[in-house]
Amino acid sequence: RIEKCYFCSGPIYPGHGMMFVRNDCKVFRFCKSKCHKNFKKKRNPRKVRWTKAFRKAAGKELTV
């Protein structure tokens, strides 16, 4: 099963990425440490230029 990165919305293939479980049992999956570090710094994915959330908000990503 291919999961989605919580921060950048990129695909996470089986055996890859990192799973972060908070004390309230909420699960966050990250494709790379870059995404996990930005999440820990409480960065907003919509303001980080390389994420899909930014591209969609800025009108750069074509949605079908």
Rank of each mutant, 00 (worst) to 15 (best):
24 D>C: 02
23 N>S: 09
31 C>Y: 00
26 K>V: 03
49 R>Q: 15
33 S>N: 05
39 F>C: 02
26 K>P: 02
26 K>W: 01
26 K>H: 09
34 K>F: 04
9 S>F: 07
29 R>V: 08
28 F>H: 00
15 G>I: 02
47 K>H: 09
50 W>H: 11
22 R>V: 10
42 K>A: 12
49 R>P: 13
56 K>M: 06
27 V>R: 01
6 Y>P: 01
62 L>R: 10
22 R>C: 00
50 W>V: 06
45 P>A: 08
15 G>H: 07
35 C>M: 00
62 L>Y: 03
58 A>Y: 06
6 Y>R: 01
20 F>H: 02
46 R>Q: 14
41 K>Q: 05
35 C>D: 01
49 R>A: 15
38 N>P: 01
31 C>W: 00
38 N>F: 02
23 N>D: 13
50 W>C: 09
18 M>A: 08
16 H>S: 12
38 N>T: 04
23 N>M: 05
55 R>I: 10
14 P>H: 03
38 N>Q: 08
21 V>Q: 07
54 F>A: 14
63 T>N: 10
18 M>E: 14
36 H>G: 04
60 K>C: 14
7 F>T: 13
18 M>R: 02
7 F>I: 12
59 G>Y: 09
18 M>H: 03
33 S>W: 03
44 N>Q: 07
53 A>Q: 10
2 I>Y: 08
17 G>P: 06
16 H>M: 11
42 K>T: 10
23 N>V: 08
20 F>S: 07
39 F>V: 02
63 T>Y: 07
36 H>I: 07
26 K>D: 12
20 F>K: 02
62 L>G: 15
46 R>K: 13
37 K>Y: 08
59 G>H: 09
46 R>Y: 09
22 R>E: 15
39 F>W: 10
47 K>I: 11
49 R>S: 15
55 R>A: 15
52 K>E: 15
17 G>M: 03
57 A>S: 08
19 M>A: 09
54 F>P: 15
44 N>E: 15
33 S>P: 09
58 A>V: 06
58 A>D: 14
27 V>K: 02
36 H>D: 06
32 K>W: 01
46 R>I: 13
27 V>Y: 02
15 G>C: 01
28 F>G: 03
64 V>S: 03
13 Y>D: 14
60 K>L: 13
30 F>R: 00
26 K>Q: 13
40 K>V: 10
